[in-house]
Amino acid sequence: MKRLLATTILAAVVAIPAGVSADTSEKRIALSNNYAGNSWRQAMLKSWGKVGEEAVSAGVVAAADAFTTAENQVTEQAAQIQNLILQGYDAIVINAASPDALNGAVREACDAGVTVVSFDGIVTEPCAWRIAVNFKQMGKDEVLYLAEVMPEGGNLLEIRGLAGVFVDDEISAGIHEGVAENPQFNIVGSVHGDWAQDVAQKAVAGILPSLPEIAAVVTQGGDGFGAAQAFKAAGRDVPVIIMGNRHDELTYWKEQKDAAGYETMSVSIAPGVSTLAFWVAQQILDGQEVPKDLVVPFLRIDQDNLEDNLANTEAGGVANVEYSLEDAQGVINSGS
């Protein structure tokens, strides 16, 4: 799978010079990243390094360098962006520490003629491009999937993330919107699992005895395996639990699939979204018309591509995919 992807990217890369309207081979792209302290960010940097290196060696761009600030501080990242402007990069791809506190530095970059593309942690400065995650849609998609596989509906248990965090509110709002549109589903319980398997296990084990039969568990990722453990410990049949692309969740799913034909789906954001931002920046430098607001595609794993994705996921990590130029063009076209 990885090899196949790499080949696709290389093929795309080789094919580019024929169809471009402006040459980007002299252009230099920098990644300004605010944090590297978890496995998701590590995978994100690794993907960037891999795709960037291939693009440089194929002569698509002159440089694709990654810079990470040490302290996850806004002031530090603002200073870093100013340095990148002075170093003469043509485009800066940003995963920002703050949506608005970097706007001054971003404005300076735009005024200096630098293309700014923000992703994941986006910036609100209008001159920059934004590749944002639609967490609400992610929550809603879970319910839509359930409506497909169990049209008769049933009781849902909702596992939320960390209380008070924007992402938790958004995903939950999406789930509730989906349930409102599919009244055959009914959320009978809601606990906070803090996106951690052990916290989710404890919270679910506590509330489970008071709940009627559960048809499915809607989650936010990082909590599906813990929920399964809690159901097992309570002596209940494990219902359809939506997974979040974590290695332990996919492993559990695979075991249950082989043992008893367990069916579910898994959805999250791939760390390789950094490579999507890379190609979007390249397309802008190439002179293509790119809308300012784009949406990150979800990495969704279904029954038939579970094995491929599991084989591609590092133990202890999260499923990943590197995006190609065609993927980026697809996102750009669907956004306009």
Binding site: G206, L208, P209, S210, A233, A234
Partner: peptide, 14 residues
């Protein structure tokens, strides 16, 4: 009254 015993069992386990 539903789950009265199971709650205690879970409380003991954790």
């Amino acid at each position: 009254g539903q789950g009265a015993g199971e709650v205690i069992s879970a409380a003991l386990a954790f």
